[in-house]
Simulated assay, not measured.
Amino acid sequence: MRFRTAAVAAAALAVLALPTPAHAEPGDSITLPVSQALANLSISEEDRTGYERDAFKHWIDADKDGCSTRNEVLLDEAVEAPDRTGRCTLTGGTWYSPYDDRTIEGPRGLDIDHRVPLAESWDSGASAWSAAEREAYANDLGDHRSLIAVSASSNRSKADQDPSTWMPPAEANWCEYARDWVVVKTRWGLSIDASEEAALSESLSRCPDEEITVTLAR
């Protein structure tokens, strides 16, 4: 009993020691209901002035193992693992695309979606970042919710839209999509605009108010 009591006390102290969103710094992890995370995001008008996709260097090989960010995501999310040959050529394999509730055979039918598109991130804060920060965002393997393998057709229908104008064709994915959008915006300190906030609030009002844990990237 003595050890159990000590363990409970230690756990309680650990919870108390967690940083609050207002005092968190890059590298800190915060845990809060997704509704609160949404409420914490700053609301401001978006500006795409000067945006170029090339401002975000992506699909790099950060760990020098021969696999680009794209292939790292494909390997991680495969339902049936593909064959890997050479430096990192992938063939075969099976993936599930939650956006449109489809099974995709082979990697060619897949895109890697930036949950919050590059252009959207530019509009909501990334225009002020350094090139290194934008590269880190575009290749974010530090949180599995930042990048996702989906059917090429669903990703291209989404393009650079936010939840006020596009949601996944599969309604069963709406809660996850809205939640993970808030996660990414929280992780990277990005703002939202008024229409985006309204769409996210509406979507999340129909979903469980899950607690999310986010490690802040900046």
Rank of each mutant, 00 (worst) to 15 (best):
N139R: 01
G50F: 06
A198M: 02
A12M: 08
R4E: 15
G125I: 00
D61C: 14
A152C: 01
I112G: 00
G189K: 07
E196F: 05
T49M: 03
L41I: 05
P98K: 08
A6D: 14
R53I: 03
C88W: 11
A37I: 09
R53C: 11
H144Y: 07
W129I: 03
T91C: 07
T85N: 12
R156V: 04
W129P: 11
S154Y: 00
K158C: 04
D100R: 01
E77G: 08
R87K: 12
H144G: 07
E72P: 10
A131K: 05
E77Q: 15
A152I: 01
A10N: 03
G50D: 03
S205C: 09
A217F: 08
I192C: 08
N139T: 04
V182S: 03
A9K: 04
E77D: 14
A81R: 13
V182K: 05
A11R: 07
A132V: 07
R48G: 13
V8L: 15
K158I: 04
A10E: 07
I104E: 15
D65I: 07
T85V: 14
Y96L: 08
R53E: 12
Y99A: 09
A149F: 11
S121R: 04
H23F: 08
S97T: 14
I148M: 13
L118I: 07
V184P: 05
V116M: 08
D193A: 02
A6E: 15
A39V: 01
L16C: 13
A194C: 01
S97L: 08
E196S: 11
V15M: 12
N139A: 04
L118K: 10
M167S: 11
A178G: 10
P163L: 10
R206F: 07
V15A: 13
T89H: 02
E196T: 09
Y99G: 04
D54E: 08
D162N: 07
E80C: 06
D180I: 01
N71L: 02
R70V: 00
M167C: 08
T85I: 11
A136G: 08
A119T: 06
T20W: 00
R187G: 11
E105S: 10
P19Y: 10
S164M: 03
E80N: 15
S201L: 09
A126V: 07
F3Y: 14
C207R: 01
R108F: 01
A7F: 13
P117C: 09
R87A: 14
T103D: 07
A172H: 03
S44K: 09
